[in-house]
Design a protein around this nucleic acid. Structure first.
Lengths: 220, 220
DNA sequence: TTCGTTAATGAGTGATTACTCACTTTTATT
DNA sequence: AATAAAAGTGAGTAATCACTCATTAACGAA
């Protein structure tokens, strides 16, 4: 029940309120599970139908092609992952008036994306796998990134650089380091070693500390 | 010519000297190109045969299944990527008697893997894509990592921690940070934005600096 | 050259693929 | 209850899949 609400909310993508049939939800759930497990190309529509408890024709009533099904699943995830940078309460709080301390922004960012990845690991795995084979996805990602993420992030970085809280590297370089460190942690945590025993609080704190000192201006 | 030598050298994996037919080389080259471009599951053996200028049956004379072809391509890459930790000249130089300065180890490691990824980007892309779908690959990776990489890496880390050059985090955490930073840089450089104009020297230096200060013991 | 071995071929195989469509069932509105 | 629209069905289709095999070509040692 709560699962369905969550899925539905994610797939609606904030756009029009598309009402999903019960069977349609089953199809999406089955497709997500199998795409994440076996990969998109190696999963057949008949397998999805079987796992969803649905006739194969039902899939093609809602999605004209298998690829359209993939896109319905994976496309909203891009926007959602970039969400903290959108015009949300979170964005206003964190980016419009960036916290005085770089550490505070970093912490809010990590905690926020940690929860997101925790809740959407399979969707992100599918996205990660397929983005390199579908130019439309790359373009969508690029658009969202250029329009929403980049400007606000860059502004915040420059503020901290003027405060001497961050070293004077080019901002793309700084963004790359922050993002690869956070994403690298989240991928290790939820995709590579999800069953390892993690002290999440400690690892997050250490990751914050790592970025903070790695980009700190304290010494040359 | 040099291409063939290089490929042959990589695929021989240091084991027995397997002599590759001209057509077999063409098959491997075609398969690598198409697997990297379209993905393993979406590439048909007939496509590979066509691009290699070879009859489809020829592929199955050398590789009994399509998967065996994939493994022949991708399996040696795991060992090669972990190479700096093996009993090579490099390993003895860098790990047996670790450099006094953590910075020196870091630099040698980055420069070395930078060149490797530069020369083998398509192979690594295939490996990255397929490793999550093939348990044998995961196991192979785990074995190589546990046997060769982990012990030497851990020993070096502890040495630097006793020198107060590295902060007193658990060594798995430190390894994770070093590896995600380096791998994140290399993936960004060669897989995500290979056509961007890069000042490689500067980016490498900044990445070393980032890790060095991120893990430094200078202040709490 | 001769001959035994290996490499290469390409038409052929059954299985599986994404997708269609004529039809039935469910749902919503009156 | 009647009816129209939407959702669901599953047998059917052409295309493609990985893989086989009987046959031919190329090669290396005598």
């Amino acid at each position: 029940m709560a699962e369905h609400d969550h899925l539905q909310q994610l797939l609606e993508a904030g756009d029009e309120e598309l009402k999903l049939t019960k069977k349609q939800v089953k199809i999406l759930e089955a497709a997500i599970e199998m795409f994440a497990e076996k990969g998109y190309a190696s999963t057949s529509t008949s397998e999805i139908a079987q796992k969803a408890g649905v006739a194969e024709g039902t899939i093609f009533r809602h999605y004209r092609t298998k690829k359209e099904l993939l896109m319905a699943i994976v496309s909203p995830v891009i926007s959602k992952f970039a969400m903290p940078f959108f015009a949300t309460h979170f964005a206003r709080q964190v980016f419009e008036g960036p916290p005085a301390q770089f550490e505070d922004l970093l912490k809010k960012l990590i905690y926020n994306r940690f929860e997101f990845v925790k809740e959407n690991a399979p969707l992100l795995k599918i996205l990660l796998q397929e983005v390199s084979f579908h130019p439309e996805l790359q373009q969508h990602f690029q658009e969202v990134f250029a329009a929403k993420v980049l400007p606000k992030f860059e502004e915040a970085i420059q503020t901290y650089q003027q405060n001497d809280q961050i070293i004077q590297y080019p901002s793309p370089t700084i963004m790359r380091m922050i993002m690869t460190t956070i994403i690298g942690f989240l991928i290790t945590r939820f995709l590579i070693m999800p069953d390892h025993e993690w002290d999440d609080q400690a690892e997050i704190d250490r990751t914050v500390h790592f970025i903070l000192h790695g980009l700190g201006e304290q010494n040359t």
